[in-house]
């Protein structure tokens, strides 16, 4: 698996700062998204992970610095499940079809759109749920539905906000394997997460963020006690297991537990 960024740069964040109202959330961020990127952005709550994604997405403008996209970049976004209005009256296929909003003005799907929606739902293993209301899905199925919507845009850059939060260990494992498959198909992927050990096990490239970029590199380079102390403001012990770093959660004097990935 590649993904550490050796292909052509398709999106370039140069010395960018961003925030909301008068609060500056991110300062002096440099980040080059390559064609074969597969990066996990980790950091504590309020560190600016989602703001960085929104900067890449283009819905937040940099206060200083710049964000430059290559003309052929097609970005798709998978939102955090906690931010979704689950009472909205919409079925799975209606939700996925939203990706085609600007391609067709009429409300109903064309035959080719119906086929595309059916194909992408089939690929993600949720074809039989097409006519269900979005609330009637499990957490993993809801993630797959939003990934299906994103894939219908035929993106070459996929941004995901906390795709592994709120799902069980098996679902998280399946999700990361699915993302790995999509990356192998040529889609660059950038995601945010709190799940250090899961990312260390599955992703080739990590970026630690806390108001700015603290460190980036391979999991072995980034997941060290020093980097984590700068990122999370607390000393975390890191063990090596089969060449893979594992963070021991001994935070704030709580009983020590090893979080298996």
């Amino acid at each position: 698996m590649t993904g550490t960024g050796v292909g052509r740069v398709i999106l370039d964040v140069a010395n960018a700062s961003a925030g909301y109202d008068e609060a500056l959330v991110l300062r002096n961020v440099d980040f080059h998204v390559h064609e074969d990127q597969f990066t996990g952005i980790v950091g504590p709550s309020g560190a600016g992970k989602t703001t960085l994604l929104r900067l890449l997405l283009g819905v937040v403008e940099p206060r200083t610095g710049s964000v430059t996209r290559e003309p052929d970049v097609r970005v798709a976004y998978v939102p955090q499940l906690e931010t979704v209005n689950w009472d909205f009256p919409i079925t799975v296929d209606e939700c996925v079809l939203m990706a085609r909003t600007e391609q067709r003005k009429l409300p109903w799907a064309s035959p080719s759109e119906k086929k595309k929606v059916a194909d992408v739902l089939e690929r993600l293993g949720i074809a039989d749920l097409a006519h269900r209301h979005i609330r009637a899905l499990s957490g993993g199925q809801q993630q797959r539905m939003f990934i299906a919507r994103a894939l219908l845009r035929e993106p070459n850059l996929l941004l995901l906000d906390e795709p592994t939060s709120g799902v069980d260990v098996n679902t998280r494992h399946d999700m990361l394997h699915l993302l790995s498959d999509l990356h192998d198909d040529g889609i660059s992927i950038v995601l945010t997460t709190h799940d250090l050990n899961g990312m260390a096990a599955h992703l080739p490239h990590l970026m630690c963020v806390n108001g700015t970029v603290v460190a980036e590199g391979t999991p072995a380079e980034v997941i060290t006690s020093d980097v984590l102390e700068h990122t999370f403001g607390a000393r975390l012990e890191v063990l090596q297991h089969l060449g893979m770093p594992i963070v021991i959660d001994d935070y704030a004097g709580r009983p020590t537990t090893v979080v298996a990935s």
Binding site: L57, P79, I90, T101
Partner: peptide
Amino acid sequence: YRALMFTTFDPDVADAS
């Protein structure tokens, strides 16, 4: 129809799309 539904459901993603 589609734009109104998308912006009602998820304005941020609609904007990015």
